[in-house]
Design a protein around this nucleic acid. Structure first.
Lengths: 339, 339
DNA sequence: TGATACGATGTCAACGCTCACACTAGGGTG
DNA sequence: CACCCTAGTGTGAGCGTTGACATCGTATCA
């Protein structure tokens, strides 16, 4: 398979040096803003750069400096607005600091995504921010130990050595949700969750069960394989409601699943919130438009993304936290029509 | 600003060569699946690779081969599900072929995004897929001429030299939309568009006006600066409906804007679709959940993304189309409750 | 048995860049 | 005036990898 030469004809530092009549090192100094360059020379070099349209090759630079100004960002499905918003937040922060993001979807078939992460490393990223999803804490620990760059995980609060973990306070969130539902007179609360996120689900599930056990309501769980998109949530909720013990409230693992539940209620002729109250997690913007609008636990995706970026930067400067570090975010309950 | 060494201690090809007692070239041959390696040697090298956890450095490789197995993907705001879905589609195709995606948001402040694209090139991407958004055809033409790699644009049908353009047939779409609205008895159709996408908006706008002129309806346009998210659509639609000539239908530039219009109607006490019918473009999944559900022109984002990826690959193999090339996609009208 | 071929491996240079160091010229110091 | 210092510049090496070529040993053939 022959290929046309890629990036053909892009001028190199040598071309600029020749054009400006200096050595490549001088050009390098100009490009990297080194102070020891005579003003006249600097001008000459800058003119040559402009003339030739020169842009330094960041791969070559990275090879020498061992720094690519590139971070990896990995999540299970960017189509989910929660991940998308987080990705956006990291983009914004990255741009501000001259960084680029290599974005990748974690592929379950590929050793739970570890293979994809490993390959990501070969691109020379300076750090990795990821939603652990299906990866366990020990997976993450092992990855962080061998990858040779800072690792930040978003969405699960775990003290993993050398890893910064950014997550919402699940206990506070669960309390907000359950208190709210109990206040609304709901007694039989179902938890609509997905077994493919054992650890996240576990944290959220445990928190919810605990919160519920303080009240009078009954908890149950429904699970459904496959990434939780609207359709999956609809199927899971339908099954759940049909065989469930007369549920009067449903808590979705995320807004997308909760939206599926909204559709399921519609399918089954159940009124929301009178017959079944529905609450989601994440606070994606589209939740404001559903019928009825979705009550949800709002996560500050952009803020968390920004923190993730800053944490990576900080790890690069001061090293990663040896015993791990957890940044906890306060949840906010946004009450709308669905509850 | 001192930094910790990045990717510290990752084994190199030399380490593997030493471990296996061969030269680095032999290791390279094993890694790249070169046929001329003795089976016994191959096994020995593979064992060394496994032992050390070696992964070839793709930057170093790219420096030599001039091929990074990396594509750039640029859009104006990944939070819009249409862009997000397209990004996802490219991810899937990329993964299948061992490619990675460098994803970037185009920043308007930065020379309409051209600066961002230029920087993207310094990362050594083998090709770029982008939503042109604010960039004109001649911007794209110039970029394609100087970037030294294949360029694919998505979302605008334009014959730009050396560029593959992937877009929906706007005329067919406009006809579907307008015919449908006329059939519903609508006579005064408003077009809710955004002036920051002059070229895309232009194509869609011209197509819609033309379609409308065939019927009896009246067309108007409302514009609003800023990227079209729900909130912007709401504001624009509100202004539009308040001062507009008794509109009985509103066509949104995309689903997000149409959703804003839905909220605006709610604000103004207008019934949808009785008082005002609303139609969007894109067919994002969340449109199924609005109140009422959104009628929309469905674009096959995943399919178009796949085509974009394949086009980049094809350009690498056979060179880009000198006079440009347009791949047109058939739109589909999904009629739901909002019209 | 010697020439030939070929399979298997190694060596060298290069990709584009930066780091460490060496060098030059001019200015200040004693 | 010999000395050192410093600003400004150039040189060589090397980052981790692969392409081109050279080399070696062994099997094949006349």
């Amino acid at each position: 398979m022959k290929r046309m030469p890629v990036r053909a004809g892009r001028p190199t530092i040598i071309d600029v040096a020749t054009e400006a009549g200096v050595s490549r090192q001088t050009v390098s100094r100009v490009v990297t803003n080194h102070p020891r360059v005579a003003p006249a020379t600097r001008v000459r070099v800058e003119k040559a750069i402009a003339t030739l349209g020169y842009r330094p090759n960041r791969m070559a630079r990275a090879l020498v400096t061992q720094t690519s100004l590139t971070f990896g960002f990995a999540a299970i499905d960017m189509r989910d607005p929660h991940f998308g918003d987080t990705c956006f937040g990291m983009q914004v922060a990255a741009r501000e600091h001259g960084y680029y993001l290599v974005v990748t979807e974690l592929d379950f078939d590929d050793d739970r995504g570890l293979g994809t992460l490993e390959t990501l490393l070969t691109l020379g990223v300076d750090g990795v921010a990821l939603f652990p999803s299906i990866l366990s804490d020990s997976d993450i620990e092992q990855f962080a130990a061998s990858c040779g760059c800072p690792v930040v995980m978003i969405g699960r609060a775990s003290k993993v050595p050398n890893v910064v973990s950014i997550a919402m306070d699940e206990n506070a969130a669960a309390e907000l949700v359950v208190d709210h539902l109990v206040e609304r007179g709901k007694k039989r609360i179902g938890i609509l969750m997905n077994e493919i996120f054992p650890e996240v689900v576990h944290q959220r599930y445990v928190a919810l069960r605990e919160a519920i056990s303080n009240g009078t309501a009954v908890a149950t769980a429904a699970v459904e394989a496959g990434y939780p998109r609207i359709a999956q949530g609809r199927i899971a909720a339908t099954t759940f409601l049909q065989r469930g013990p007369d549920l009067d409230a449903l808590i979705g693992f995320n807004d997308t699943m909760a939206m599926g539940a909204l559709l399921a209620c519609d399918d089954l002729g159940l009124r929301v919130p009178q017959d079944v109250a529905i609450v989601g997690y994440d606070g994606i913007p589209f939740g404001a438009l559903t019928n009825p609008p979705l009550t949800t636990i709002v996560q500050d995706s952009i803020g968390m993304a920004d923190a993730a970026f800053r944490s990576l930067l900080s790890c690069l400067e001061h090293g990663p936290p040896p015993e791990g570090k957890v940044l906890l975010w306060e949840p906010e309950l946004l009450i709308r029509g669905s509850s």
